[in-house]
Amino acid sequence: MVNDTTLLLDLDGVSVIRVERCEDGGRRVHLATADASARACPACGVFASRVKGSATTRPRDLPYGERGLEFVWHKRRWWCREPACPRKSFTEQIPQIPAGARLTGRLRSAAGGRIRDAGSTVIQAARDLHLSWPTVMDAFKAASRQVLEAPLPEVEVLGIDETRRGRPRWEKHPDSGKWQLTRDRWHTGFVDAHGCGGLLGQIEGRTVADVLAWLSTTPLTWRNSIRHVAIDMSATYRAAIRTGLPHATVVVDHFHIVQLANKMLSLVRRRTAAELRGRRGRATDPEWKARRRLLRNREDLTDEQFAKMWNPLLDEGKIGQTLLTAWIAKE
């Protein structure tokens, strides 16, 4: 039967021998190996039967309470009696604490998970878990590989957009002497725009070749499941989709459509004022007073706001009629 202290610790493969209070107020937990498979030789897998000696390690685990726990693991060193095995002796190990490990597996997983899943920084996770920055960074890399190596979820609507990251870097070619771009400031992100898959991938660059290179790394069955691709009004991304996903329907996202329509409306306003008034707009002009409301949707305008925009422009003649026609087209 497992004692209550061992159940409270909940660390598979070891049992609690005793717990003692340290001089600084902390608690020291003495552990013994409780997993019979720890006697298996890591080289040949044969169970050892002859004890060579004993060893003591102090692995670190997740914090418990305000001061945490100090582990002392009393384990044995075994002789491997298999003649063909190159390993003559070995110490006990369990999945949570491999041989030579100073941290338990769940402590490493918790450190990497705080950054990968909880959005914590490396330095903050190191402070919270009392670990060094390189240790936490290595744990984060291991946790990230689990996500990167996992199969992509099925996606029906793929979103592609660009992101600016840092500054570009140029280096001179040693042979030709020409400057060449070695780090692009633009990255391309691929997201699940309709489901819950989140960020699927991110690559450096935003050319047709960059997008096709990423698509070529995905399975054909995954690409065939994509029905729509949402992009901004980028001819580059559209050309890449036509080549890499010819069966998918290209969809321009709503934000960029509205943005382009509002840009054209502002262009019509400035151009019409310049042609008919022979100057730039002024604060006293009705079209200048209505410039903010012209960029808003009808459902976002109250009846009073709509009347303040519509009536003065309607009475302004050709300038107002042109702007109202453009506004109706935008809507």
Rank of each mutant, 00 (worst) to 15 (best):
R206L: 01
D192L: 00
V147R: 13
R58Y: 10
W214D: 05
I94V: 14
F306S: 03
V19K: 03
F255E: 10
R116C: 01
L199G: 11
F140Y: 14
W179A: 11
V72Q: 04
A143L: 06
R269Q: 11
R279Q: 04
F140V: 13
A43K: 13
S49G: 00
H256S: 08
R238P: 00
H194L: 15
A329L: 15
L314H: 15
D232E: 07
L260E: 02
A326Q: 02
D184T: 13
C22K: 11
D285K: 09
R18M: 00
S266A: 15
K178N: 09
S120M: 00
S132C: 05
D10T: 04
D12H: 08
C80M: 03
V122L: 15
R292T: 11
S49E: 11
A139L: 08
V2R: 04
P86D: 07
R77C: 07
T249R: 12
G26N: 04
V191R: 05
W310I: 00
L158H: 05
L220S: 12
W310E: 07
A142D: 14
M233L: 13
K141F: 03
R108N: 12
A274T: 12
T217N: 00
T236Q: 04
V72P: 02
P168F: 07
T217M: 00
G112N: 07
A40C: 13
C85Q: 04
G189R: 09
A143R: 09
A290Q: 05
C196H: 09
N262T: 02
G244W: 00
E171Q: 13
P42T: 08
K75A: 01
T249Y: 05
H130W: 05
E171F: 03
M264L: 11
Q93R: 15
C44Y: 09
S266Q: 14
V252D: 10
